[in-house]
Amino acid sequence: MTLVVDALGFGYPGGAPLFRDAEFRVDAGSVVGVTGPSGAGKSTFGALLAGDLRPRSGVITVDGAPLPLRGFRPVQLIHQHPEHAVNRTWRMRAVLRESHAVPQETLDQLGIEPGWLDRRPGELSGGELQRFCIARALHPATRYLVADEMTAMFDAITQATIWHRLLAIVRERGLGMVVISHEPALLDRVCDEQVAVETLR
């Protein structure tokens, strides 16, 4: 059970190739960090893993099957700015339902309070909103998560709380996880291994 990137090539139209023959793998149940300075391609790599961008060449396989081009994506991306990832006019109940009927147990594990479900995104703090984005990504068919600077915008206590709660779920479900961050201390804390994005070029 592995997410495998084989001979991946990618570049933005008109730009120099960002990745050439990149090889990368994450086993289910393990947490891999991706490091590198801003502009080095970390977020692009995350978007490729999740299927938000299509590689120019090479293959990405999820537990042996190619990354599906339509339908549910087994690799789910969690963004840095949750306020840009949800519909601002919906109540949170609808934001969750867009993905799946999130079990009460998951909401409890993430510390989502029942009263928050009737609010709109603007009435929640960033940390509260991010928990909804995480809940939404934890679809029963999700096999891997990509956390792209998931807690960079939050204070230390919110950051530690979100990570402890999410890592418990990831362990329980045996998910694989890719963590993109520029904060070495955080990666040292949460990852089993780390890869510098420059080595993927």
Binding site: D155, I157, Q159, H164, V190
Partner: peptide
């Protein structure tokens, strides 16, 4: 103290 200790390089404690 809680804020300081919550840093990943310190205790990484959730408050």
């Amino acid at each position: 103290r809680d804020l300081w200790r919550a840093l990943p390089q310190n205790r990484f404690s959730p408050g």
